[in-house]
Design a protein around this nucleic acid. Structure first.
Lengths: 225, 225
DNA sequence: ATTAATCGTTAAGAAATCATGAAGAAATGG
DNA sequence: CCATTTCTTCATGATTTCTTAACGATTAAT
């Protein structure tokens, strides 16, 4: 808890009430908080303060959250911040668009301060763990449709490759089944409940059991060792 | 990892910000890094430092990446470096032109430092393995439209030759059907789905089954044994 | 400990994709 | 123009990959 105090958090929402509510609650915990009321403004601020975490409302005038997120993710100069979307429970389409744009998490409105804060702690904890580890035991080569694992290269069938590619695109992030289906299978196709599991199993057969972890009731996550 | 530190890497991009970003990240790993902001400059530096790897932006003023690459590849005095293009995801036409010009790999912008570095490691690993092989089991002579296979020379019809030339230009890379069609047939002509297969088959009849591998659902790849 | 929910595993059938052979078009070269 | 080669198409068979479905194992909740 105490080492999180150094982090800077940017909150972006077009409703002043929410901004105030959130910033009050988060400041109270000792974080540095900045606010913006639309995407454009957010981008300006991000450039200057380089926050650790951004809470980003999806629905906003001028520039919505998805777009803002995409722009940030493309900006090479940024120390890529963790981005969590704020969504109304009804906007689940946003989840799919959102993590394609590079989101790390979702926080559903209405927001409970206690839950929010523990989520923030949990997200910030990732920063230490996910950065270094350059021994890159696994490398995914989109060109060759091949995965290099400890120097050996491994050809994967299409679906397996795409699934691994998705999971490995954000190590540590947990993808739920809907998200996986949306990206690997496409939003229209309907496949049975166990299909994903079978592909996961084949991947584990080939990679070993150490890379893909199951989070029961939630989804799967990729991690290097 | 430690023997990679001796390598010299040249980065070529016209945007100073990207140059700085890349050189910072790559230097941090212990490589010797040089930079150039256009093709002309790159050529001068290449002559002097003889780098192991060049990261080459495609879009540049004065002399673009493709042209630069071609010139380097034609220069027999150079210890041919590995060349990877930096491309925006939208410039896929560049991939086609690029590997015809002799590129070894592509790195898509926006660039993620972690992925970049592991890709660099992987590319440099090739140096040891790919250089010797004087038993050159296959040799493609673009001028004569002839392939020498284990000492015997083999005349190929145009389409077969171009197809083989494409595949062999980047051993290990998987070319999908669209890419093959674009290069061998040209982007306008429309041919049936099975046409490529037939030519592949004829090549396999003549070369043996060991050179061209099918990646189902993806494409074909050339590999020596 | 029992139950309910979720995930793992396996094998078999379905679907997608590719290989192959043959035959006719198109191109090429005399 | 004809003969030959090369290219393409099409039909059929083979193979790989994908999906399903049944059942067992694990986990979480009561």
């Amino acid at each position: 808890m105490e080492n999180s105090k150094g982090h800077t958090i940017l909150i972006v929402d077009d409703e002043p009430d929410i901004l105030e509510f959130l910033s009050y609650n988060i400041r109270k915990e000792g974080f540095k908080v900045y606010v913006a009321s639309n995407g454009q403004e957010a981008l300006r601020i991000v450039q200057q303060i380089n926050p650790s975490l951004i809470l980003l409302d999806v629905m906003m005038p001028v520039m919505d959250g998805i777009e803002t997120c995409q722009i940030i993710r493309k900006d090479l100069h940024l120390n890529q911040p963790i981005i969590a979307f704020l969504t109304a429970r009804t906007e689940d389409y946003a989840q799919i668009a959102g993590f394609e744009a590079g989101a790390d998490d979702y926080i559903n409105k209405p927001i409970r301060p206690r839950l929010l804060l523990s989520k923030i702690e949990s997200l910030l904890r990732r920063i230490k763990t996910s950065t270094p580890k350059l021994d890159a035991s696994i490398l995914i080569d989109r060109d060759r449709f091949v995965v290099e694992l400890n120097g050996e290269s491994l050809a994967l069938p299409k679906k397996e490759f795409e699934l691994l590619e998705l999971l490995a695109s954000r190590p540590g992030k947990v993808f739920n089944r809907d998200q996986i289906l949306a990206v690997v299978w496409g939003n229209e196709t309907v496949v049975g409940e166990r299909t994903i599991d079978v592909h996961i199993r084949k991947l584990r057969e080939k990679l070993g059991d150490d890379y893909i972890r199951t989070i029961k009731g939630v989804g799967y996550t990729f991690q290097e060792k």
